[in-house]
Design a protein around this nucleic acid. Structure first.
Lengths: 104, 104
DNA sequence: ATCACATAGATAGGGTTTCTATAGATAGGA
DNA sequence: TCCTATCTATAGAAACCCTATCTATGTGAT
């Protein structure tokens, strides 16, 4: 798929709009990107575990349609991290685009 | 530095404007990105070697100011690859941005 | 009732990318 | 002569992301 490091950023962003569980986060990223991203379970869950380990998200179990699911929630560190990551993403995109417009 | 996979794209782009040697490619990317990117030798040369192995660039030795330097040149496969990579980069950026504008 | 599919979560193992660190050589200016 | 900029290169490791595989439950169709 090649997320180029943008998956954690998108996950943090989605969670900043409300706690959610893995499967739904993946679906949301897929639908909002118009199918550009295909978030596989094997990519998503290690990413969620890593973000939790970093302390930018935490999790709790809840019941959804009679089934136990794990909800993820942005921590206050996660909010700061999201701001930083958004700025870094914009900086990266505009830097690449400057190079790709050079030498015209 | 975290190039997020954009270094090969920028290298191919720079070479599409004319053959060049490693050190100059790095300098160009650094200056045109206004210093956002710091292209270390240990990142650049493995990338160049990898692109050459893929056949999208080739190289030859030349003399520059009385010194032997290795020039890199885009192959015809490299031109196609550059087009593909540019399209993919634009697609990726707009897909991420769609997700980052969602749930507003 | 049972079969298929969507939902939900997880890990193993590997490949690619990028990093830091290190090495070596030459040209030009002080 | 020595220092700095130029120029190329590899080793080793960390980070990131992939595919593949596994388990389990709820729901709708047949």
């Amino acid at each position: 798929m090649n997320f180029r490091g943008s998956l954690p950023l998108m996950v943090l962003y989605v969670l900043s709009k409300g706690s959610n569980h893995g499967y739904r986060i993946a679906q949301h990223i897929e639908s909002e990107s118009d199918g550009f991203f295909n978030v596989k379970a094997g990519t998503l869950y290690p990413t969620l575990h890593s973000l939790e380990k970093q302390g930018v998200i935490d999790s709790y179990k809840d019941v959804e349609n009679g089934r136990e699911v794990r909800y993820y929630r942005l921590t206050s560190d996660g909010k700061k991290q999201l701001d930083t990551s958004l700025t870094e993403w914009d900086g990266h995109v505009s830097a690449v685009n400057r190079v790709l417009r050079s030498l015209k």
